[in-house]
Amino acid sequence: MPKTLRAKVITVGDSAVGKSAITQVFHSDGAHFPKSYSMTVGVELCVKSVNIPDTNDCVELYIYDSAGKELYSDYVHKFWEHPSVVMVVFDVTNETSFKSCQKWLERVKNKTNQELPGVLVGNKIDLVGRRVISPKIAREFAMKNSLEYCECSAKEMENVEAAFYFVANAFYRLYEEKVEVMNTLV
């Protein structure tokens, strides 16, 4: 019987960077980019399973998409308890949203003493002419913070899965490592 791991994914980033769009495109297998703009109020939960290559195993991602508005922050932070992995999203056309990434990352890290695999996601790469954050700058920030870097366009449904596959696989590897330790305890 294949095994199923379960991971809590916290998506953070400034308001309007595309967190909800990314989550929904991934959840609907690229069938659905939310056309009308509806702001996330508080927190939404989305569940989707990712198969791990070369195994029969999968990781079920419990994706908590939270609103970036301070207004909801007390409520939202309750859902951040015990994160398994983190996804920090910014908009490549918006410098402020990139500068905020450090702050978002720290907030989630403060919720746990454990290793926290994570990914930095630069969204809206379809807006080519308006881009202000280069892949190089983003990648440097990611590396400094031990994050993987992915970029995507939720609107064009381009490369959205990569970030989720990365966190699922990172969590899977973490499990394998921890079981290795459990095996050596006696």
Binding site: K3, L5, R6, A7, K8, V59, Y175, M182, V186
Partner: peptide, 12 residues
């Protein structure tokens, strides 16, 4: 046996 174990696979 203490050597063999049950492991949880994520979340509480």
């Amino acid at each position: 046996s203490e050597e063999t174990f049950w492991s949880s696979t994520g979340l509480f």
